[in-house]
Design a protein around this nucleic acid. Structure first.
Lengths: 210, 210, 210, 210
DNA sequence: AATGAATGAGGATTCATTCAT
DNA sequence: TATGAATGAATCCTCATTCAT
């Protein structure tokens, strides 16, 4: 109908469902969200959801897939830059930290007891979803892992066990999920400031003095 | 924390229920766990649960309460020591990190979308529980906050915004919840080693070179 | 039966729908078949069905109507012949038995808990359909009844209670519906042989030695 | 509580559910019956059903199992007798024909598009159920098959293809399912008379003149 | 003539909770 | 102290049907 619809005709309706789902999952968790909740959030009925997604699990899967896409999109530019490991990590970390604060709904779905909730659909679907998800996550982590490894090799980072450091870095950057919520009345640069401090602490954890 | 708790850490039967519940909540999340699951885990029926806890929410509340007790017990000795902020934080952090790996079941319950699941019981109960839980958590965080503040004042820690640093520290120490699972065949000192590295990175994040 | 039916046995599109419906009803029963199933069977969507039939019930009704037409067409030539009751019954029975094996899809719809499934549409429609169906069936049975009565009168058949014999004869001839399924690799005359044996047993049941 | 319950304590409640289910399945078919229907039939709620049967399919399976038990019980005495094939078949046939009229509810479930409705439960359950059912049915048919074979060998029966004759015999004896319904005002010996005539026709179909 | 989107009613299933024992 | 039976509300999902195009 409108320009937006015209530009992404195939995506408008499903995206509306995805957004509503992500939002509800954030508020109440996956298991605590009923499809009626999601439908109500859109001002529609369950039928609309089932028209696009054949089960609650598939909906979760789609939300997670999109969340991963968002995450990759956020850090890829920095990852592709020509910087050295310290500056590259700083840029990636900053982008990721900001991304976590901006796209909370999708990110929460990504971290909501993820391993467990894939119960619907048939066994084959579940396995495919899980595999796809694990593989995406591994690919994402590998981007950080590569930079950490490069900095470890060059002596820029002080890292004892790479995988522990990787987990620590990512956990720290993700941490806002559990304690930060955007507020209408906060200063404009709040998110930037939080991101900067998290990034500095992250680098500090790797032995980089700033 | 109080005398009663310390002296009678819960009779056998209720503790069996709590353990079973914590274990199930860890595996499937609170919302994904049915009371039948918990009962089956004990080799009993739901009646046993209802004999000691009057609702599912209350059970969750009890599991969380016990988790908090465990957490306080873990860091209190270090907190009460006479060390300076750096060594005191190191000791507390190490104790907490180890605690997170040893008591996963109870800790997972503590972090499972905590704010949301308190739906049963009457309004008054809910408010009491939430208040009690928030207050416990604040008290726990305050122990870390005090040490951070002391180190910030003395110049031992480089901290810009105290609350951000506090969140970062605790998140990092909690992080094993999401990625570490004890394995029968791992070297005996695995948990100690992980704890040590996490503590070092934590101190590094606060500008302490090690 | 009437000229219209004989001359325009249904246009192509509606017949395609009917065939698909009959096939699905055979496979999964009426209640177990969704209109999506039928549509998928045609490689189309539900709209096509609704274009020709205004409800699922009406579709069933149409399938049954066509099944009855097929049945009448099968036995009418033999019925109209000048033979005596034994030979006439033999010819009708053989034709009907063969017909049941050849047109299984439509025949199954006819015998699928027929009385029950007429739920859609308005009351008037339902009553009309039921009445029409019962009347068709009675007319069909009456053709057999007439021959049995003639043979009973002439002493050619040993029949105690006519209606019981009628039910027995028709049930026996219909029986292949429950146990016979055409197979690609069966000898060409399999159906003919089954029909012959069923007919002989039917006549035997009426006291005709063959 | 009462004597009946005391005598069959483990069975009373489940049997009530089974009877209600059989009755509903007869009236509306399996797919057309909702568990609410069954519950209402008992003056209870669905919970009662699920307390004893874990799915609708399992309920159907249980009804069928019981129906087969009834069928075996009906013909076994005659089968175990010392009679020759003609008299043995006559006795078995009579018992089975009467059984079909007396236990319509359970028998209908047995013949209601049986192959199709096993959709619930997991694949393993389904396969077990189907296998168990097919095996029971085969065992039941084999009892008739043995008598037919004996009579065929001795020349007492004129049978061309044994399996066709077997199907015909059983179909004929089952036929009352489709056309007979007990009525309060029918003469007392109606069922006996129908059974006798069906048996005579069955024997006639096998070339035995009576 | 046909499609895709959307709805709403109904149906299978789960589960916290109550109760008699 | 604990159990088994039963309930009813909630939840996932299906499907006949309508409608705009």
């Amino acid at each position: 109908m409108n320009a937006q619809t015209a530009l992404k005709p195939a995506k408008a309706a499903p995206k509306q469902v995805l957004d509503a789902a992500a939002s509800c999952f954030m508020e109440k968790g996956y298991a605590g969200t009923s499809l009626d909740d999601v439908a109500r959030h859109m001002g529609a009925t369950k039928g609309r959801i089932y028209h696009y997604f054949s089960s609650k699990s598939e909906l979760l899967h789609a939300v997670r897939k999109r969340a991963m896409e968002i995450n990759f999109a956020a850090i890829t530019p920095a990852f592709d830059s020509e910087e050295g490991p310290v500056e590259k990590l700083r840029a990636m970390a900053r982008a990721h930290a900001l991304n976590m604060m901006r796209e909370q709904a999708y990110q929460q779905a990504l971290f909501d007891r993820l391993n467990l909730h894939i119960t619907g659909g048939n066994r084959a679907d579940r396995d495919v979803w899980r595999e796809e998800f694990m593989s995406d996550r591994r690919a994402f982590e590998d981007m950080f892992r590569a930079v950490l490894a490069e900095g470890q090799a060059s002596g820029a980072f002080k890292i004892r066990t790479l995988s522990y450091a990787l987990h620590a870095v990512i956990t720290m950057l993700n941490s806002t999920i559990s304690w930060y919520r955007p507020r209408a009345d906060e200063p404009e640069n709040t998110q930037a400031q939080i991101a900067d401090e998290l990034v500095n602490m992250t680098l500090g954890a790797l032995g980089v003095n700033t």
